[in-house]
Design a protein around this nucleic acid. Structure first.
Lengths: 154, 154
DNA sequence: TGATTCCCGAGTAATTCAGTTGGTTTTAGT
DNA sequence: ACTAAAACCAACTGAATTACTCGGGAATCA
């Protein structure tokens, strides 16, 4: 498992979606507006999220994305895995410095650590993430700002 | 906090160092040999580890690196932080989509998550990491192989 | 003196990041 | 039927990062 800025974008966008899907699907333009992320970049991220079955998109006016599971059932690890698709974590692939079929130090080591991190992030759901202290206030503030001047390009 | 392959290299190298420093300092050529990492790349990593006070280098024949703290006192987070130096985690810096002095959703959100990940990795010491089940056997195997044919370039 | 090691800086091919551009469907509202 | 809104898709791009290499010092020991 890798932790990159792309993963952050995805988690942020998914949380935004979770917080706003009460009134039907949420369009990417809304999320892009609220979170300050490029819409086309969001499209790429949501393409992967869709392929993983985390979201579902409906086309046409009034369309957008919906979560395919409840916020309790989607973990941070799910989202990060979807967009970051782990690269062959061990890099040695049984070759190079570890000969035979015995695996090298790096392999077991990082595999273990990676498992622990995944378990950790797997236990944080979008619901829990959205339920933090200060987030609600900020959400309301963002909603307000978005309603007042929806097409203001900052 | 980011999790990249560079962090893995550093953690692996530090663990290798921890497992072999019983007989004086460990040279980078040994670590490079055992772990299959470029020596020059290790030099760059250890330069950062040294600046963070995690290791100390002694020059000349028989020289190498030593840990400046005990393996119990060095966490995985310490090592990763040393080589990956966190880039301004929030990316918004109080500007762009969050105006005024109020911070954006991303900011609090990822700051919280990042803190939790850091706490998690901060609680895993090199000692614990090296004490895992299968690692010792592999270590012995690698030692043996290294003694038998130390200069074999695979 | 010479070998061994750390130390340092510059360069580099490949890859990834975070987009942009330019479309094509699909659907809703008129 | 027409238009606009939205998802969808693929290709391209500048900038940054990665994982090195290369070429040298500088300290230390035999």
């Amino acid at each position: 498992m890798r932790l990159t800025t792309r993963g952050r974008y995805a988690v942020t966008a998914m949380l935004d979606l979770a917080l706003h899907e009460h009134g039907g699907p949420v369009s990417l333009s809304e999320i892009a507006e609220r979170q300050g992320i490029s819409q086309s970049y969001l499209e790429q991220l949501f393409s992967r999220l869709r392929k993983r079955g985390l979201v579902d998109g409906t086309r046409g006016p009034g369309g957008g994305y919906r979560l395919m599971k409840s916020t309790e059932q989607i973990s941070v690890a799910d989202v990060i895995d979807a967009v970051d698709e782990t690269v062959d974590a061990t890099r040695c692939g049984g070759q190079r410095n570890c000969q035979g079929d015995q695996r090298c130090l790096t392999h077991d080591l990082w595999a273990d650590l990676s498992t622990q991190i995944r378990e950790f992030l797997g236990n944080i759901s979008l619901n829990e993430l959205g339920g933090q202290k200060g987030v609600q206030i900020i959400r309301q503030w963002q909603d307000k700002r978005c309603n007042v001047a929806p097409h203001t390009t900052v």
